[in-house]
């Protein structure tokens, strides 16, 4: 399978979860590799995405330095989960504040592994 099709389908799977609003695969310098969003998205989520893009480099450096596999932020009514995919890419999942974080943690970890395998 084309690696690109693989990425698209993994991210689409993720946003099909009820609580997930957006899934973005970032390169650690803040460049977007691939993204998927729920059809209706608000200005608020765009603000959060902008924050993610601006901070992904800093967060990924922190994760690498402290050997963290996952970092969660609560921001603007969203939960933002950063999961390490490989040395250069990081999966960012934006979910609603009331999301089931245990379930989401497992699912994002699984997706990060699948994306890593397809890259």
């Amino acid at each position: 399978m084309n690696y690109n099709t693989g990425l698209t389908s993994e991210l689409s799977d993720l946003i099909h979860l009820d609580d997930v609003e957006a899934a973005i695969l970032f390169r650690i310098d803040g460049n977007v590799i691939k993204s998927a969003f729920k059809e209706e998205h608000s200005n608020e989520i765009l603000r959060t995405i902008q924050w993610c893009k601006a901070n992904v480099e800093k967060v990924s450096l922190e994760m690498k330095t402290n050997n963290l596999a996952k970092v969660t932020y609560e921001l603007n009514n969203f939960n933002v989960i950063f999961s390490v995919v490989n040395n250069v890419t990081i999966l960012t999942t934006l979910a609603i504040r009331t999301a089931n974080m245990s379930l989401l943690s497992i699912e994002t970890k699984r997706k990060a592994m699948l994306i890593s395998a397809s890259l």
Binding site: Y3, R27, I28, D29, N31, I33, N86, N87, V88, T89, L119
Partner: peptide
Amino acid sequence: IQNLGLGGKYNRTCK
């Protein structure tokens, strides 16, 4: 063009 030097498909990129 960029080279992050960390390996992987998106290590060297063009924009």
